[in-house]
């Protein structure tokens, strides 16, 4: 099978922080329109894998191919332009700006200095912002400062900021952390809606949520792949039960 069949092909990925291998010879493959969930105990290296994919951390070894393009040598913004969007574990939005402005800045236009100086709020931009705000349940909040949003709403806003860029691979680090049960439900719905035309990688600890959304699950432990397959398969894997689910 060639790499081209996968949206994302990670092979032999290793990163060493002063000798400590946070990710160790890790490989996994994500298909088109797939929702992949990565689970694993705290410190397993899940966030670090996303850091490596989006270029925040440079890998020590291994390759990351996205639609046939090698990401390990690309700049952070280059990786975004290629179509990879990433939500951080702690919701990071621009608190001093309004929800509208948060989305506006994420709209993929005028991304260099000159473009930013001459950027105009065209109808197209306004429509995209409106549409995205509707999708992430924040239309009412458009003119509010992002600092006033609840924790869950910040998570949604950050997802919206990624959606407006229309990435072909969306990576979400614990998107429902800190959300109420009702908010989790809405988020699961949202995720199913937005994966219609893209692949999504989700890191999550909430097993109900995982069961709800995952096409396939990858289990990490101490930087390595522990198990992979359907939710059912993974849940019944004795290795997984021992290090993670058994607790």
């Amino acid at each position: 099978m060639s790499d081209k069949d996968f949206v994302l092909a990670v092979e032999g990925l290793t990163v060493s922080f002063d000798g400590f291998k946070a990710v160790n010879d890790f490989s996994f493959y994500v298909e088109e329109n797939e929702i992949r969930v990565i689970i694993g105990p705290n410190g397993a290296g899940k966030t670090t894998v996303l850091d490596l994919i989006c270029g925040k951390t440079k890998s020590t070894e291994g390759s990351i191919k996205f639609c046939g393009k090698e990401l390990t040598k690309m700049s952070e913004h280059g990786i975004v332009h290629a179509g990879v969007g990433r939500k951080f574990q702690n919701p990071s939005v621009y608190e001093d700006l309004t929800v509208f402005e948060n989305l506006e800045l994420s709209y993929p236009k005028g991304r260099n200095v000159f473009g930013a100086l001459t950027f105009k709020r065209s109808q197209e931009v306004l429509d995209a912002i409106q549409e995205t705000a509707e999708m992430v349940f924040l239309v009412e909040m458009l003119d509010k400062s992002a600092a006033l949003l609840s924790h869950g709403q910040k998570q949604w806003l950050e997802i919206g900021m990624l959606l407006i860029q229309n990435p072909s691979l969306l990576m979400l680090d614990e998107p429902v952390a800190g959300m109420s049960v009702a908010e989790r439900k809405k988020t699961a719905e949202l995720l199913r809606k937005i994966t219609k035309d893209r692949s999504v990688i989700v890191i999550e600890h909430d097993m109900n949520f995982v069961a709800d959304i995952a096409d396939r699950v990858t289990v990490m432990h101490q930087g390595k792949l522990l198990s992979e397959g359907s939710m059912n398969h993974v849940q019944n894997d004795p290795k997984v039960v021992e290090v993670y689910l058994g607790h």
Binding site: C54, K56, S75, E76, H77, V80, H81, G85, R86, F88, S92, V93, Y94, E95, D96, L97, L105, S106, P108, R111, N112, E158, M161, Q165
Partner: peptide, 15 residues
């Protein structure tokens, strides 16, 4: 935005 959360700007495709 850069002052608030530089990472978020960087990973929104800005250099």
């Amino acid at each position: 935005a850069v002052r608030d959360t530089e990472e978020r700007v960087r990973f929104s495709g800005y250099n």
